[in-house]
Amino acid sequence: MIENLDASVFVGVALILFLIGFAGFIKSQSAVRMLISIEIMINSANINFAIFALYNDLTFVTGHVGVIISIALAAAEAAVGLGIILSIFRTHGTIDATDFIELKG
């Protein structure tokens, strides 16, 4: 590991990943690709959790616990999201997010 490496490098990486995920979420029409973008954004948050855990005392591992909780939440979210996508495909015949206009007022 590089000595005296500033954590700003990884904050920058997390920022770039978040922006890519955000742009992809806005742009995409496929519901699966929206989920992919959300996973990228969650991962950028996880990088911050893990890197800032090193700032503290190394015996204080709450940052790592945060990453584990976040990954479990992402797994639950992906399972429910893909279930909803399959359910919508069964009723609508498409997973294009721009076609879901049932709740439109």
Binding site: V13, A50, A53, L54, H64, I71
Partner: peptide, 19 residues
């Protein structure tokens, strides 16, 4: 990144298995 710069092999394993 988890392995090399956050120094946590456990997070690498969880990330690879779950994600």
């Amino acid at each position: 990144i988890f392995l090399l710069y956050a120094e946590s092999a456990l997070l690498l394993v969880i990330q690879m298995i779950v994600y």
